[in-house]
C-alpha cells in the first residue's frame, strides 16, 4: 500500500575503514542480535504456500502473522496441537468437583441445617451450582490458558520492529524464519524467502 510509507529500515551498521581499531570499536554500539528474517505477502494464499515451502525446506522455527486466523497457516508451519482442550477439561473437572464438594461440606459437615426435612446431602439440589462452577472454572481455564500458552500479555516483541508490521492487523501477511532455527543462515535464508515470493524481506532485530 503506497499510502503506508514507513521510514526505511536500517539493517546493517555502517562499517568504517578503521573499524579494526580498538578505540573505534569501543565507541561503536553493540551490534543488535538478530531475531529472524521476515518477508511480506499480499494475500493469505501466497503466505500459506510460502509457509509450506519453508517447512518443506526444513525450517522449523518459523511463524506466520495474519490479520485473522488462517487454519491452513498453522498447519503449514507445523503447529497443529495445543494442550488447551486438556487444560479446559481439567479446569471443568476441578470446577465441578470443587462446586459439588463445597456444597457437600457446607451443608453436610460444616453447617447441617434441616430444610423442609430434606436430607443433608440433597445432591439433586446441588447440581445447578455444580454445573455453574464447572462452567466458570473451565471458562477461566480457557481464557487464562490461552493467554499463558501464548505468553500474553507481552507488550514488546521483536516482530513489532519489522517494517509495515502495523499492517499485520489490517491486510498484510508476514512470514518469519527465526535466527535460532538450526538451518538458519542469514544470506541463504534471505535468498530463500525471496524465492518463495516474499516482498520486503528484511532482518528483524531483537
Amino acid at each position: 500500500m503506497s499510502d503506508e510509507k514507513r521510514e526505511s529500515f536500517s539493517e546493517t551498521e555502517p562499517h568504517e575503514a578503521d573499524d579494526l581499531h580498538l578505540s573505534v570499536s569501543r565507541r561503536r554500539r553493540v551490534a543488535p542480535t538478530l531475531y529472524g528474517i521476515m518477508g511480506e505477502f499480499n494475500n493469505p494464499s501466497d503466505l500459506v504456500a510460502a509457509a509450506r515451502r519453508t517447512y518443506e525446506a526444513g525450517y522449523r522455527r518459523i511463524n506466520g502473522y495474519s490479520p485473522y486466523p488462517i487454519e491452513e497457516l498453522s498447519e503449514a508451519i507445523g503447529f497443529t496441537r495445543t494442550s488447551l482442550p486438556l487444560i479446559v477439561l481439567i479446569g471443568g473437572i476441578i470446577g465441578g468437583l470443587g462446586g459439588f464438594f463445597m456444597q457437600y461440606w457446607m451443608e453436610v459437615i460444616a453447617y447441617p441445617l434441616n430444610v423442609g426435612g430434606k436430607p443433608y446431602n440433597s445432591w439433586p439440589a446441588f447440581i445447578p451450582i455444580t454445573f455453574e462452577c464447572t462452567v466458570l472454572v473451565a471458562a477461566f481455564a480457557a481464557v487464562l490458558g490461552m493467554l499463558v500458552l501464548n505468553k500474553l500479555p507481552q507488550p514488546y516483541h521483536p516482530v513489532f520492529n519489522a517494517p509495515n508490521f502495523a499492517l499485520a492487523t489490517r491486510d498484510r501477511f508476514f512470514l518469519v524464519i527465526e535466527a535460532n532455527d538450526p538451518r538458519f543462515n542469514h544470506d541463504e535464508t534471505t535468498q530463500f524467502l525471496n524465492t518463495v515470493g516474499a516482498r520486503n524481506v528484511s532482518d528483524v532485530e531483537i
Binding site: 486466523p69 487454519e71 495445543t82 490461552m146 501464548n150
Partner: peptide, 15 residues
C-alpha cells in the same frame, strides 16, 4: 496485551 496475529497465537485463540 501485545497481540501480534501470530499463527501459533491464532491457533490457540481459535481453540
Amino acid at each position: 496485551m501485545g497481540w501480534r496475529g501470530s499463527a501459533r497465537h491464532w491457533h490457540r485463540y481459535e481453540m
